[in-house]
């Protein structure tokens, strides 16, 4: 990326201080959001989200697998993010590994809850096919196509929409006398198991530049940040995860303040996304 000159940096910081950012937004305003579902027909569910110039694609694929011994009544979900070099040349080769890992872990923490599976956004027990023998493994893949800041929010939104679009085929399991053999699984074409994504949280990242924090930073603004807090909030206003990035230390009161702002902003974001999802479903049905 081309570096910023002093003048530009000053301009950005000044603008934020005066609640008028470089592209005309206020501090707590999101860029125009575009959402599409079903972009990857081969996947069970997929979505494409554009936040301004940031573009990400999320896909959900379901495969049959065996549940772990520890949790024989739960399915498995894994989230993996990949940054395509089309987004930025530094993502070439292994350059994207750090960022991808960071994003993947952050998303996992927000969406999947703790180690025991408590507080997960998706009800894992709904993924079970035959207790102890067969369950669905969900593989959620995110791909960053174009990067202009605020990747985490876009990815979380994409995953939420993709999950709403996901249809898991209905399975008929036929048991036979053998207990240790593979159960015969018959897949029917009539789907589905649709997820209830109303409890899937979104992530709102608040970036602190100078003394103010902004929502949905572009990459230029992100280059000026001192620290950033990503808060994952679900529809009921509960906080599902919290990540702080950046070197500068923050006063705890500032953090509380940021969290409440995030809650407030996220409600609007969630309702926006939900209406998008509903609109998409309506189009599907007709």
């Amino acid at each position: 990326m081309v570096g910023l000159s002093e003048g530009e940096k000053h301009f950005i910081r000044g603008g934020i201080a005066q609640d008028l950012r470089a592209d005309g937004r206020t501090k707590l305003q999101f860029r125009p959001v575009t959402v599409e579902t079903g972009v990857i027909p081969q996947a069970n569910g997929s979505a494409r989200v554009r936040l301004g110039a940031t573009e990400v694609i999320a896909s959900v694929k379901a495969e049959l697998g065996k549940p772990t011994v520890l949790h024989p009544d739960k399915g498995k979900v894994s989230i993996y993010v990949d940054c395509s070099p089309t987004a930025a040349p530094i993502f070439e080769g292994r350059g994207s590994e750090d960022l991808s890992a960071e994003l993947s872990v952050a998303l996992q923490r927000c969406l999947l809850g703790g180690k025991s599976g408590a507080g997960a956004a998706i009800d894992l027990s709904s993924l079970i096919v035959l207790e102890g023998k067969a369950c669905w493994d969900l593989y959620i893949d995110g791909l960053v196509v174009s990067s202009d800041g605020n990747l985490l929010d876009a990815l979380a939104a994409a995953i939420k929409v993709a999950l709403s679009d996901t249809g898991i085929p209905k399975v008929n399991v036929s048991l036979n006398a053998e207990t240790d053999g593979e159960p015969e699984v018959d897949v029917s074409d009539e789907e589905f198991l649709q997820f209830d994504t109303s409890s899937v949280p979104v992530i709102v990242t608040l970036t602190k530049v100078g003394k103010h924090y902004i929502v949905d930073a572009t990459s230029e603004e992100e280059s000026q940040m001192s620290s950033a807090v990503s808060v994952s909030v679900n529809r009921r206003g509960q906080i599902c995860g919290l990540t702080k990035r950046g070197g500068a230390g923050l006063d705890p009161t500032v953090i509380f303040d940021m969290i409440s702002v995030a809650k407030h902003v996220s409600q609007r974001f969630i309702s926006l996304l939900d209406s998008e999802i509903a609109a998409a479903e309506a189009v599907m049905d007709e």
């Binding site: 206020t26 575009t34 599409e36 579902t37 027909p41 926006l272 609109a279 189009v283 599907m284």
Partner: peptide, 12 residues
């Protein structure tokens, strides 16, 4: 084939 179900909305 999936038609684009896009919509662009601005918050403000």
């Amino acid at each position: 084939k999936p038609k684009p179900r896009s919509s662009s909305t601005l918050l403000n």
